[in-house]
Amino acid sequence: MEELWDLYEIEKFLDELDKKILTLRELKQKGQLVNPQELEILELKAQKIKEELFNNLHPYHRVQLSRHPKRPVFEDLINNVFEDFYELFGDRMGYNDFSIVGGLAKLNEYPVFILGHSKGKNTQDRIKRNYGMPNPEGFYKAIRVMEVANNFRTPLITVVDTPGAYPGDVAEQRGQFIAIAKAISKLFDLDIPVISLILSEGGSGGALALNVANFVVMLENAWYSVISPEGAASILYRDSSKAPLAAKQLKITSYDLLSLNIIDEIIKEPLQGAHKDLNYTFDNIKHTLIYYLKKALKLDNPKEHRFEKYRNIGIFDNLIKI
């Protein structure tokens, strides 16, 4: 198996390097830099390392970037891509699952309903939000937001970021499989346009439950897969540490999914990942969402469009047609 360079180690090293460069630049500005060539060489070196490594990321590096502790989450988008958010909480069945967040917001001048997996920003918040892993109640809450959006004839934008539906005993008892099926099913019922953004992690059925959309866009370093690379590795190779190999096999990166026609566009991230330049990331997300919202608003029948789109996904041989 190929050796992967350690993303977090390299990032630490590059951060140190950047800090050093910054200090030298300050010295230069003050006219106190003894050897200006040193700065130039260092700048070139840093840029070269960054480009060499980050322009050739292994799929599993992208998985690591998607799980980076500083990676923006749905909450950041609510405050920086959208405006004027008003949250709707309940599933109307006796529970409020914090791993799903939804409500009314604005994208520039367009009112939209937004709905996404919510991972939380700090440890306490992450626990409260179950690390973005919904129980059945979360999917029922999502269904509610979908219905409301539909009745208000307002487009829905979903944001996918989940390791997967929560694998718990109580979740199973309450019918996790039914809840997921119903959420997917509900997305086919809607007469409004639906646009889906895959923000970071697209873990299997729990992700798909928010992802059936007219247009799907995806952050460059996000992943979306039928099974997590770790899960696949433990089944295929009986060794979850072989996740990098599985990540490559499963074809889960934004570039893979674009070539498989599962997504419509890749949203570019800064060279070292979305967290390195948040404003750049938010700007790109915003522009892309607006572009696809306008496009979706032009569809004659968004519901029919979704039916046709998903009806035609599949790669097989038809012996009669050959």
């Binding site: 798909l208 897969s225 039928v226 498989l260 996904i313 599949g314």
Partner: peptide
């Protein structure tokens, strides 16, 4: 069949 299999759920 990777992501294409996941999409069969929707299909």
């Amino acid at each position: 069949e990777g992501i294409i299999s996941l999409m069969q759920m929707a299909k």
